[in-house]
Design a protein around this nucleic acid. Structure first.
Ligand SMILES: [Mn+2]
Ligand SMILES: [Mn+2]
Ligand SMILES: [Zn+2]
Ligand SMILES: [Zn+2]
Lengths: 136, 136
DNA sequence: GTTAACTTTGCAACTTGGTTGCATCAATTT
DNA sequence: AAATTGATGCAACCAAGTTGCAAAGTTAAC
């Protein structure tokens, strides 16, 4: 059985050809990608199918989505063990020059002391700034 | 001179009737509001005018915007002294039951130790969960 | 093996929130 | 008063995401 196949099955996702392709594209990325980005990596693919593929992946915690405030949601692979609980979360970085969004997997979202009238379910922390890639 | 008038002029915003009205609506809120919310508080008002009013307010740091991931940006008044620099920022809370977004003005965004290849400009931290308001 | 049931895919069409162009109106300056 | 500048209102547009539905593909039952 292929690597990608078992990765899908581990998350209870039926491994179709399309899904294996999408997973392999996601695996190649160094930054999170949007639905539109994903669409462009394929010669000919339906946006809706890709959309639903990403949704399935996210529902099964194979990937997580990042709302970086740019207006298009980005997606990146989860770690093997990730359950997308607050303690699994990490910080994201959006470079305002190259517009890329990176998972800072090594930087956990810092815990905050919420007033007792609030109970926590999830945290989204996006840092904007400039990365040291070449910016033309 | 009216309170609202001087608040506008303090931020170098020409105080028109429309702008004073919008500012007063913003002042009444206990939670951040969206453009659509704002539109509904007026009997008859043009969405575009309100949109541009909010934009002007934000550009002049009278208000700040919050992207809470719901798909509609929320707005809330800044503190008098706010310059919207990283050290001025606070955490926001989105209740998944009542869908309201609150400024946690007392909770500054925790600082994170970024790898040196990243320089920080801004941080958006939104906590999702449940607030203790009555939820029907 | 054929049929039935269920799932995935592809196309078209729609929704929503946000945005732009441009003409009109109001305020300010000369 | 005429000219300039800025604010407002209407219509039209745009991008991202989403839904409905039929066709194609898979799996399970007979
Ligand atoms: Mn990530
Ligand atoms: Mn706030
Ligand atoms: Zn960069
Ligand atoms: Zn609530």
């Amino acid at each position: 059985m292929k690597e990608s196949e078992s990765k899908l099955e581990n998350r209870n996702i039926k491994p179709t050809a399309m899904r294996e392709l999408v997973l392999s594209v996601l695996s190649e990325q160094t930054a999170a990608i949007s639905l539109a980005d994903l669409e462009q990596t394929f010669e000919k693919a339906d946006k809706v199918t890709l959309y639903r593929t990403l949704k399935t992946f996210e529902e099964n915690k194979l990937i997580h989505s990042i709302d970086d405030g740019t207006g298009s949601v980005k997606y990146a692979l989860c770690k093997e063990t990730c359950q997308c609980h607050p303690e699994d979360l990490h910080v994201h970085f959006l470079c305002t020059k190259c517009k890329k969004t990176y998972c800072l997997n090594d930087i956990p979202v810092p815990s905050v002391n919420l007033p007792t009238r609030f109970t926590l379910e999830n945290i989204n922390m996006v840092i904007k700034g400039i990365c040291s890639n070449f910016h033309r």
